[in-house]
Amino acid sequence: MDRAKSTLEQWRIIQAVVDYGGYAQAAEKLNKSQSSLNHAVAKLQFQLGVQLLEVKGRKAYLTECGEVLLRRSRHITQSVNELELLANNLETGWEPTLTIAREIIYPMDDLVDVLSQFYPLSRGTRITIIDTVLTGTSELIIDEAVDIAICGGPPPKGHLAEPLVDINFNLVCHPEHPLAQFEVIEDDQTLAQHLQIVIKDTALGPNTDLGWLKAEQRWTVTNFHEAVVILKKGMGFCWIPEDIVHSLIEGGQLKKLNLKGSSKRKATLSMVIPNRDKQGPASELIESLIKTHHQIDSI
């Protein structure tokens, strides 16, 4: 195998000379002598047989060839930096990847707010977010297939949960749907005569139906945004989180239904750490940020 003609250190030096506007400035930033930087760049150009920099006055400028090579060198040095960081993370127990299960009724805005705080401290940890529904969330917790889970309803047996937030649901349909003509829907039988839009449970194994599912006519979709598309076409009714449909109700695109004795429903979302013994520092940091976001005191 042929040996490389250049070193990472040489490319880092030339990057510094360009980024800081000259040899003197780069020498100060790198805490090296200006002559050592001049020597390193001159040697690199000699080894490659290509002029990378030309000095005009007191400032160094890239040649056309220098621009192409410097751009490529940044990818290489960045990759090496990430590799070294990953090695350090593995040595200290910092997780290189994390998977979060998010019950789809948990507002994505809240999770993004948390992860935006985590990102500058993440040390390159890659995050995977899995949208889950009902017993699908519990299944992932039981299988320890995720690092953090935000679930609706009680956690699986043997797992502790930290309550985070209550999510209110509205019963809605299109303003011209037959159900919209009722000021108050007196009983379940009236609903049962119409098409219900429901969200598919993401569990892989057998699951039990949760929620009001008495309608004989039922369409199942994978998320609430698909359900809203159907509702806006004048088809069916659905229980949907208030934060998703509030503006649509205010804008007259959907109608909130009043069901006697159950005009509004609520679900409590909780955070579960499937395996505390295996939890690493990155997961602990996200857990702490989620608690802070929801104004929960950490013990």
Results as ranks from 00 to 15, higher is better:
residue 47 Q to L: 04
residue 264 K to Y: 08
residue 190 T to G: 00
residue 206 P to F: 11
residue 94 W to N: 00
residue 159 H to W: 08
residue 113 D to P: 02
residue 130 I to E: 04
residue 50 V to M: 08
residue 52 L to A: 11
residue 111 L to D: 10
residue 53 L to V: 13
residue 113 D to N: 14
residue 55 V to P: 04
residue 33 S to K: 09
residue 26 A to Y: 06
residue 112 V to M: 12
residue 171 L to C: 00
residue 35 S to H: 11
residue 285 L to E: 04
residue 144 E to W: 06
residue 167 I to M: 13
residue 7 T to K: 10
residue 66 G to I: 14
residue 161 A to S: 09
residue 164 L to C: 04
residue 235 M to E: 12
residue 82 E to N: 07
residue 11 W to M: 06
residue 139 E to R: 07
residue 137 T to M: 03
residue 282 A to T: 04
residue 125 T to Q: 03
residue 102 R to A: 07
residue 67 E to V: 10
residue 286 I to M: 09
residue 146 V to G: 09
residue 119 Y to H: 12
residue 251 G to L: 02
residue 16 A to I: 11
residue 12 R to G: 14
residue 161 A to C: 09
residue 160 L to E: 14
residue 4 A to Y: 13
residue 245 V to Y: 10
residue 60 A to Y: 11
residue 104 I to N: 13
residue 183 E to M: 09
residue 67 E to Q: 15
residue 234 G to V: 00
residue 278 K to G: 00
residue 204 L to H: 14
residue 20 Y to I: 00
residue 18 V to P: 03
residue 25 Q to Y: 05
residue 25 Q to C: 00
residue 177 H to K: 01
residue 183 E to Q: 14
residue 158 G to V: 01
residue 119 Y to V: 12
residue 150 I to T: 06
residue 39 H to M: 13
residue 64 E to I: 11
residue 56 K to Y: 12
residue 51 Q to N: 15
residue 152 G to P: 04
residue 223 N to A: 08
residue 10 Q to E: 15
residue 181 Q to H: 13
residue 254 L to D: 08
residue 204 L to R: 15
residue 68 V to L: 15
residue 70 L to W: 03
residue 169 F to Q: 04
residue 131 D to H: 14
residue 68 V to S: 11
residue 233 K to Q: 15
residue 92 T to I: 13
residue 208 T to K: 08
residue 60 A to F: 08
residue 168 N to Y: 14
residue 13 I to W: 08
residue 281 P to D: 13
residue 280 G to H: 11
residue 27 A to F: 12
residue 194 H to I: 02
residue 291 K to G: 00
residue 278 K to M: 05
residue 130 I to R: 13
residue 62 L to K: 03
residue 59 K to I: 10
residue 171 L to K: 07
residue 67 E to R: 15
residue 167 I to D: 03
residue 115 L to C: 07
residue 84 E to G: 00
residue 183 E to N: 14
residue 249 I to F: 01
residue 89 N to K: 09
residue 65 C to F: 15
residue 245 V to D: 02
residue 128 T to Q: 14
residue 166 D to L: 06
residue 171 L to R: 08
residue 152 G to F: 10
residue 16 A to N: 12
residue 112 V to K: 15
residue 285 L to W: 05
residue 177 H to A: 02
residue 263 S to V: 00
residue 57 G to A: 07
